[in-house]
């Protein structure tokens, strides 16, 4: 694989993960448990959309960010499986957010030192925003985990449900290896260690228990997603696909 192609794949992985999670969070708009959370969730969604746009614009390869977002199909999407999982209740959304924010946090902290100057520069900007996202989702994991019996049960269920998608955060392919060797990509093994330590500590503080089963779902790097992604894309892409030559 050429370095160019590897960088393209690498950037798509990052961009798609942010875009799909942004789309999920946007579904909450107007339905939050309290007005302040309506604002917070749309704010995080907006930040992630900005990250996706910056990454897709940079990935380019003769295609616009919009073409990459709206005209690729399910099998061409490279987002992490966790991002596409349905919102569920607020506990499920917040736990998914916390697991992803923690991943983003260590990932972009590492990518700030990337030899690719553009990726390093945008990572600095992203990290500032992600630091807030992580603070926000961590706060809710603590509140719900250590709140009432009902909130504890709900977020523990969410953890049991979502845990098997966390292995996928650290799966790598030849593009990752090439990017790591070139000093452009992050060391996912290192990030896994940091992520695991941080996540375990916070979940423990929230009185939550990590599931014993270590079985992990795989496939997003090969574009093998859960059934949920197709519906998400159908909704997201319908206008540009219906009116192919239209400018909006």
């Amino acid at each position: 694989m050429e370095t160019d192609q590897a960088l393209f794949n690498y950037l798509l992985r990052l961009a798609d993960s942010s875009l799909i999670l942004s789309q999920r969070l946007a579904e909450w708009c107007g339905h939050g448990p309290i007005l302040e959370e309506d604002i917070a969730l749309t704010n995080v969604s907006l930040d992630l959309l900005g990250h996706a746009t910056a990454l897709l614009t940079y990935a380019g390869k003769g295609k616009s960010a919009d073409d990459l977002a709206f005209l690729r199909s399910e099998r061409e999407y490279r987002n992490i499986l966790l991002a596409e999982q349905p919102n569920g209740d607020f506990a499920c959304t917040m736990l998914r957010q916390f697991l992803t924010d923690s991943w983003h946090y260590y990932l972009y902290a590492s990518l700030q030192k990337s030899k690719d100057e553009t990726l390093a520069a945008i990572s600095v900007k992203f990290l500032k925003e992600i630091t807030y996202h992580l603070r926000h989702s961590s706060g809710w994991v603590l509140r719900l985990g250590d709140g009432t019996a009902e909130s504890h049960l709900r977020i523990q269920n969410a953890l049991d449900e979502l845990w098997s998608f966390t292995g996928d955060l650290f799966d790598s392919d030849s593009a990752d290896e090439l990017m790591l060797a070139a000093g452009i990509g992050a060391d996912l093994n290192e990030i896994r260690k940091q992520w695991t330590a941080h996540v375990s500590e916070l979940l423990n503080k929230a009185t939550l228990k990590i599931p014993e089963s270590s079985f992990m779902q795989k496939g997003s790097l090969q574009g093998r997603h859960t059934e949920y992604l197709g519906y998400l894309l159908a909704e997201m892409q319908y206008l540009p696909r219906t009116y192919r030559d239209a400018k909006w």
Binding site: A26, I39, T42, T53, P240
Partner: peptide, 22 residues
């Protein structure tokens, strides 16, 4: 929001609806 036809339109609409909540 989830059906906005471009990334730019989606970002603007998200920001707008967020303003309304504010």
């Amino acid at each position: 929001i989830t059906r906005a036809p471009s990334l730019r339109r989606k970002a603007i609409l998200l920001a707008k609806v967020q303003d309304e909540a504010g």
